[in-house]
């Protein structure tokens, strides 16, 4: 069989297998967030008015900015793959660097957004939130949990991409062996994709 001949050449290298593994891991991530999306939809259905009111508290500008940032970063990491195929190492590193910078920019925005909310006294267990309706408590609980978990994924993704940048620099990843770069990009697209769902759910549907 072709696939097996492939795996025998030079110590178990199997790019197709590595990518399959990454895709399956992405399924698990989607289901992880899926649990939170179920909770969100159930509570939104039960408290439509409160969710509407609470969503208006969020800053659409920051949300939109972050969406654009992530979409562009997804583009740059995809371009990095093309450029490594073209054997252009420097360009690859620059594109990956831009991706990392955009991700950090996203986190900075997130930081200001969260601290803004917290300074207004809106955080789980706060006095102000306890006086609001139950729907609003749920909304903000979900807001912090879901965007927080997403931010955690951004941090993991950036670390992953940073590690691959180092591998590119040391020529461990090059034009004929770049599956780990593809996998880091796949992961990054997942992080982007989840945000594409979070953004309308929290910021746009009011």
């Amino acid at each position: 069989m072709i696939m097996n001949d492939h795996t025998q050449i030079d110590e178990h290298r199997d790019d197709e297998g590595a990518k399959t593994g990454m895709w399956i891991f992405i399924f698990t991530e989607l289901l992880l967030f899926g649990g939170l999306f179920i909770v969100y939809s159930v509570y939104r259905y039960l408290n439509p008015m409160a969710f509407h009111m609470a969503a208006e508290e969020l800053d659409i500008f920051i949300g939109t900015a972050n969406t654009v940032i992530l979409l562009v970063s997804s583009m740059t990491i995809a371009m990095a793959i093309t450029s490594i195929q073209l054997k252009r190492k420097r360009l690859t590193l620059i594109l990956m660097g831009i991706t990392v910078l955009l991700a950090l920019l996203f986190l900075v925005n997130k930081y200001f957004e969260w601290t803004g909310k917290i300074s207004h006294g809106i955080f789980p267990g706060s006095e102000i939130l306890h006086q609001s309706s139950q729907g609003e408590i749920l909304f903000f609980g979900l807001y912090y949990a879901m965007t927080g978990l997403h931010a955690l994924h951004i941090i993991v993704g950036v670390t992953f991409i940073g590690y691959v940048m180092w591998l590119v620099k040391t020529d461990d990843v090059k034009y004929d062996d770049y599956v780990i770069l593809e996998n880091s990009a796949l992961y990054w697209h997942l992080v982007d994709l989840i945000w594409i769902f979070l953004f309308p759910l929290f910021y746009l549907i009011t």
Binding site: P124, Q134, I137, L138, G141
Partner: peptide, 12 residues
Amino acid sequence: LQIGFFDPSLGG
């Protein structure tokens, strides 16, 4: 963190 998910007193 007292985030309300399932606690009825927090709407869960």
